[in-house]
Amino acid sequence: MSRTAVGVAALRALESGRPDRLFDDPYAGAFFHAGRALFADRERQDGRLGEVFAEQVAVRTRYFDEFVDGAEQVVILAAGLDARAFRLSWADGARAFELDLPEVLEFKDSVLAEQGARARCARTVVPADLRENWPEALLNAGFDRNLPTVWLAEGLLVYLTRDEAERLLTEVTALSAPGSRISFEHRPDGDQDEVLRKARAVGGEVIALWRDGLGPEAPKWMTARGWQTETVTIADLAAQYGREPAGQTRGGFLAATRIGEPNH
């Protein structure tokens, strides 16, 4: 089971307990308690890392909640302990596909079953390694490539090398009908981003896994492949949600809409 996924669930549980919460995830606490043994020998370090990312995760979760609003077909890449299929309101007939490693999905479904959780949309889990032939697994699970799709790559690209990120997004592009949308984290300052520097100062196993994905060039890369892009900062979203922005990072999110064929 992924320590990163359990750690993010802990932060979502903390946010859900606030009177001014940006979202409510009633399953996050159960995920953390079921997986907390993973933190037995690292609680102090992981607690410090959680302090760095708490506000980021709160804003990020709310942002991606809004990004899928009204979608008819959603694909959640590296879904981890994402419970959106169970906690959000969905359009009639909406379908959500969750891709992740088999052991992650098995852990997740066991906890949800214990909680008596019921999906609010047509939910399909797709056990797959994103470094392998996941498009075939998605298509075999009933994904409709002719339908505009909302893709979530929340907290994912930072763990991929540039080559891996390019391959993944090329595969997403090939499966995306015009009008499809995707969003993922974007940090225009790259390694110099304030939040990333603070996290690296804390260190730890999670930080050692970072590979930075497409880096600051993501908007240019996506535009060249038939996507129309825009970006928004964590600070602007925090202000919009009534929160005091944490730190001076220019980092935030890239949102892209599929408009046509690649330019090359």
Rank of each mutant, 00 (worst) to 15 (best):
Q115R: 13
L156K: 00
E164V: 14
V104E: 14
E55R: 13
F53E: 03
I182Y: 06
L130G: 03
L139D: 10
A224Y: 02
V68P: 08
Y159L: 10
R211S: 10
V111Q: 05
L99I: 12
P127H: 14
G50H: 04
F143L: 05
Q56I: 05
A30N: 05
F97S: 05
A28V: 09
F86K: 06
R84Q: 12
L160C: 10
G226L: 10
Q228P: 00
A137E: 10
A165M: 07
L157K: 02
L49W: 07
L160G: 09
R118G: 06
W210L: 15
F39P: 07
P262T: 13
A201P: 05
V126C: 12
V59S: 07
A37T: 12
E106R: 13
A40G: 06
A238Y: 08
F31E: 11
E261C: 05
V150Q: 11
A177C: 09
L196P: 00
R167P: 02
W151K: 09
A218H: 00
G17M: 07
A96W: 11
G251H: 06
Y63F: 15
L138Q: 08
A79V: 13
A246Y: 05
E230V: 09
A34E: 02
E136M: 08
F31L: 11
W90E: 01
R95T: 12
W227K: 13
L196W: 03
D46P: 01
G213P: 10
M222R: 10
D144S: 03
C121D: 05
L160W: 04
L77V: 14
L160F: 15
E217K: 14
A91N: 11
L88M: 14
D163C: 03
I234N: 11
F107N: 01
Q115D: 07
I207S: 02
R167S: 15
L152W: 01
D193I: 13
L99R: 12
L168K: 10
D41Q: 14
E171M: 03
E103L: 10
G142Q: 10
A85Q: 09
E103W: 07
P148M: 06
F31Q: 09
R123C: 04
L175E: 02
R95Q: 14
R3Q: 12
A40V: 10
R21N: 13
A30I: 12
K198I: 00
V202N: 08
L209F: 02
S183A: 15
